[in-house]
Design a protein around this nucleic acid. Sequence first.
DNA 1: AGGGCTTGGTTCAAGTTTGAAACAAACTTA
DNA 2: TAAGTTTGTTTCAAACTTGAACCAAGCCCT
Lengths: 174, 174
Amino acid sequence: MTTRWLTPEEQRAWRAYVAGYLLLEDAIDRQLQQEAGMPHLYYSILANLSDIPERRLRMTDLAERLKITRSRLTYAVSRLEKDGLVRREDCRWDKRGSVAVLTDEGMTVLENVAPGHVETVRAGLFDRLTPEQVGQLEEIFTQIARGFQEKDGGETAPEDLPWRRRSSPCSGTP
Amino acid sequence: MTTRWLTPEEQRAWRAYVAGYLLLEDAIDRQLQQEAGMPHLYYSILANLSDIPERRLRMTDLAERLKITRSRLTYAVSRLEKDGLVRREDCRWDKRGSVAVLTDEGMTVLENVAPGHVETVRAGLFDRLTPEQVGQLEEIFTQIARGFQEKDGGETAPEDLPWRRRSSPCSGTP
DNA sequence: AGGGCTTGGTTCAAGTTTGAAACAAACTTA
DNA sequence: TAAGTTTGTTTCAAACTTGAACCAAGCCCT
C-alpha cells in the first residue's frame, strides 16, 4: 500500500506541534527542577495523589492515570520515597499490590511548589491562548487520548465496570 | 502576589494535553524503536537534514531547529555517526564549527522508515482530527513556540537578518 | 599584539527512561 | 488441589538526557 503522506497543512501543524511541546516541556522541567529539584513527571505524581480523597493510589492505577509504564513509576516513586514525599504501603486485599501515599511533607512541598508551576504553565501556554483555543486544545487532545485508550485499554474495558473493579484505593474498608 | 490558578476549563485542557502528548510520543517512540531502532529525536535529526538542499547543517543550527540543547545533539549525532547514518565534517570558515551531514545510507534508512512513521502519526493524530482542528493545532502551537522564541532568541534576533547571518551551511562557496 | 569576552562544540557525572526478565501472589480449571 | 496462567510490581542493564565544566577559536578593544 502506498503511503499517505502528510498534506502541507498537516506538515505545518506537525512541525509546530513538535516544536511547541518540546519548548513547553523544557520550560516546565527547568522551572520545576530549579524550584523543586524534580522533573515534571515527579510533580505530576504528587499532584495526582493530592487530588484523591485518601491521597493514596495503587501503583498500577497511578501509572495508568499518568500514562506511563509501571517500571518508570517504580523508579520515580522510589526517588520520591527517598525524599520523604511519598510513602509505600502494602495493599491489604491483594498481597501483590503496593500503594503510593502522599505524605504530609509531600503535600507541603506540593503546596509550596504549585504556584510557580502554574505560573509557568500559564506563561508558556494559557496566556497565549484565547478561551476558544483552550477549548480546542482540550477537544483535540481528548480525542487523541481517547484514540489510544480504545485500542490499548479495550473499549469500555470490563474492569472499568463498577462491579468488576480490579483494584481499589486499598484504604478504608473493602 | 496571589496565584492565578487554572480555571476548570484550563485544567481540563491541561490534563487532556498532557495525557495526549504522552500517549502520542510513546506510540511514536515505540514504533520508531521497533522498526528503525531509534527514538523519535534521532529520526527527526535525519528528517531535518534531508529537508535541506545540501543535507548538511551546523550543529548549533540543527540544535536550534530541533529545539534541543547542543549537548543532547552531540550525543545523538555521535550515535547516528556510529551507525553510519550521519557524518561529521569540519566547517571550513569557522574552525570551531562542525557540520552534520546526512550520508547516503542515512538517506536510505530514512526513506525506508518514513512511511511507517507517517502512518503512526496519522493513526495517532491526524486521522482523529477534522481539517479545522488541524488548523487550530497549528495555530495554537505556533503561538506557543513563538512565545518562547521571543524571550530566548531575542525578538527578531539580529543574527536572523540575512546580512548578519552568523552561520551558514558550511558547504559550497562562502 | 595581548588581554578579555563570546561562541561552537564536546565531555563528564549524575539522574532518568526503556524494555525485557524475574518474582510472587492470585486466579482458573481440570 | 496441583498445574498453568494472569496480574502487580520490582529489578537490571543499556540507552538517553541534563547541566555544568571545559577547550578552542573567533571577536573586540586598546
